[in-house]
């Protein structure tokens, strides 16, 4: 039942050259996204989730950013080797992205209508009137009442949740084949979060697009994604189908993350376990496994050699030297 491959990212490495030194943000990650598939990318803040997505769309400011190596094949074309003009044709039209904070992600001095129609005019070649009609449809589609009148409103006249709906309507305006959602619910109230999630899931079905959902919230992932990638310090440390990941996590970091997650099906008297230590500084070139200093399964080899991301079960990959089930080296 393998669906056609849509996006194939291989060995992506992104660095930032700052006055403090080089930041190793993304250290050679590879993943594939198939048509209609939803992939979740999970990890702590600053582990390179957003940067890895922005890298493939050319949204990293260069300098200070630098994409050191890698390929990102989208429908047989490498996004990382496209010219700016070619990328403009992909961004928003083929691959769209919604962002974390709807308060700051919309331009405060342009009307909502303008921010939606400019896209339709650019990518779909629509005339202004036609684009306005389509914008009204889009806003109604994402559940904004009185849409025609609201076209002339500015972002500050919308609530946070409504703004995120506007953002979604805008980015889905050209029915992209991939939607990258960069923590789109993090800045919202919990009830609004659920509404936005439901909306995105509904729209995903209607458009039939593939999706990459970036989050630091494992709980969000469960009801949404088919496959999950866990990122740590710029590496993908585990990749599996969502059920496998929750029931049979094999990477010590994933195990620790899940132990820190409150669950309804767990006994009440068990305390949530926090992960000791702090994520490593990305200013140091990684040598060995970046999780080793915080890992309870650590062995000598972890300190000196970064384990590759390897298949350990069908459709289940981890980057770890240790077999957590038996203990000791794999």
């Amino acid at each position: 039942m393998e669906r056609p491959l849509l996006l194939d990212v291989a060995d992506l490495q992104t660095r930032f050259h700052t006055p403090e030194g080089t930041v190793y943000a993304v250290n050679g990650i590879s993943y594939r996204l198939h048509e209609g598939e939803t992939l979740a990318m999970v990890g702590e803040s600053g582990c390179g989730k957003s940067v890895s997505m922005m890298s493939i769309l050319g949204l990293i400011p260069i300098p200070p950013g630098e994409i050191v190596s890698g390929t990102a094949r989208y429908r047989d074309r490498d996004l990382l080797r496209m010219s700016e003009e070619e990328l403009e044709q992909v961004r928003g039209k083929e691959i769209a992205m919604i962002f974390q904070d709807p308060m700051t992600s919309l331009n405060p001095v342009l009307t909502v209508g303008k921010q939606i129609t400019e896209m339709l005019q650019k990518h779909m070649g629509m005339k202004p009137a036609e684009a306005a009609d389509r914008a009204v449809q889009l806003l109604e589609w994402v559940g904004i009442p009185d849409a025609r009148r609201r076209l002339a409103d500015y972002p500050h006249q919308f609530s946070g949740g409504m703004r995120q709906r506007v953002m979604i309507a805008m980015q889905l305006a050209c029915t992209p084949s991939i939607l990258i959602a960069d923590e789109p619910t993090t800045a919202l109230d919990v009830t609004i979060q659920a509404q936005i999630m439901d909306l995105v899931i509904r729209l995903r079905e209607e458009v039939g697009m593939a999706m990459i959902w970036i989050t630091h919230n494992l709980g969000v992932v469960a009801g949404l994604a088919e496959r999950v990638m866990v990122m740590y310090a710029g590496f993908i440390v585990e990749e599996a189908n969502v059920d496998d990941l929750f029931q049979d996590p094999r990477h010590p970091y994933t195990i620790a993350l899940l132990a820190a997650l409150p669950r309804v099906d767990r006994r009440r008297d068990r305390r949530l376990k926090s992960i000791p230590g702090a994520p490593p500084s990305l200013l140091v070139k990684p040598r060995g496994c970046p999780f080793a200093p915080r890992c309870e399964f650590v062995i000598a080899r972890c300190q000196s050699e970064m384990p590759p991301l390897e298949l350990i079960a069908p459709r289940h990959k981890i980057a770890c030297w240790v077999d957590v089930l038996r203990g000791g080296s794999r």
Partner: peptide
């Protein structure tokens, strides 16, 4: 952020 958004729209 809104400039990043504008760029992500392919403008």
């Amino acid at each position: 952020d809104y400039i990043r958004t504008a760029k992500s729209k392919g403008l």
